[in-house]
């Protein structure tokens, strides 16, 4: 079995890498259409505000549905990361496996909340407390299950920082550690309805959104760089086999 890329597999992998930045563009577009951005509903929103948001028109569930497609583009990114890690992991691909499994879980944890939000907008004339319940569940499911994300970040960082055979640059390992750190405390969103630690707060939603977007763009573009450099017969990182 060869680990090198030829023809179709190289082009497919390049497409996977571009899915990183593309996820950000499509998901943000969907959220802007839906009105989730620039200012999302918060943990302090009243039942009236929640119902008003979801009953403001078909653009809400449709925008969220578009965001769910954007978020699905994380799947090819995880596949590309898995391949590049496998390429560089000496011996048994243990860290690669951890990354693949935890990364797969993250895609589900991103996708399901979007579908719950879209469902909330599907029949907003239902009793208000049910829409509030759907909205709370969607947002808490979107923000707080950070475990798989952090495990994925740590697996990537460990693979990059502890081996000299990886084609990925060391700064990307440190970036993964930082991104993982910015997620760790998101679980405290369960305790607050207001302030910077509520789900819509600066240090929860906005920080995680920023760091995850940076992560998607950085992972995607770095993997693209690795593939292009290999195709051109260049070593992406001088001094590393």
């Amino acid at each position: 079995m060869t680990r090198e890329l030829t023809g179709t597999s190289r082009r497919a992998l390049l497409a996977c890498a571009w899915c990183g930045p593309l996820t950000v563009v499509v998901a943000f577009t969907g959220w802007l259409i839906a009105g989730v951005l620039p200012v999302p509903l918060g943990a302090s929103s009243t039942a009236g505000e929640v119902v008003d948001f979801y009953s403001s028109g078909a653009h809400v569930p449709m925008g969220i549905a578009l965001a769910s497609i954007g978020i699905s583009l994380v799947i090819p990114v995880i596949a590309a990361i898995t391949y590049v890690m496998w390429l560089g992991e000496p011996g048994a691909p243990v860290l690669t496996s951890i990354q693949a499994v935890s990364g797969t879980a993250t895609t589900v944890l991103l996708l399901v909340p979007m579908l719950l939000m879209a469902s909330a907008g599907f029949r907003p004339e239902r009793p208000a407390e049910l829409t509030v319940l759907l909205n709370d569940t969607a947002w808490l499911l979107f923000i707080t299950p950070v475990g798989p994300f952090v495990i994925q970040n740590v697996a990537i960082a460990t693979a990059i920082l502890s081996t000299s055979t990886t084609p990925l640059p060391r700064w990307l390992g440190f970036l993964n550690l930082w991104v993982g750190f910015t997620f760790t405390f998101d679980v405290i969103a369960y305790a607050f309805h207001d302030g910077p630690f509520a789900w819509h707060g600066l240090l929860i939603f906005w920080l995680a959104l920023t760091s995850y977007a940076i992560w998607l763009v950085a992972m995607g573009l770095t993997i693209r760089h690795v593939i292009v450099a290999r195709a051109a017969g260049r070593d992406p990182i001088p001094g590393v086999a």
Partner: peptide, 17 residues
């Protein structure tokens, strides 16, 4: 190494927030 210093800086930036 340089990456480590950037990490520490980024980590402390979160604390600065």
């Amino acid at each position: 190494e340089r990456g480590m210093w950037l990490f520490l800086l980024a980590d402390m930036t979160v604390f600065a927030l």
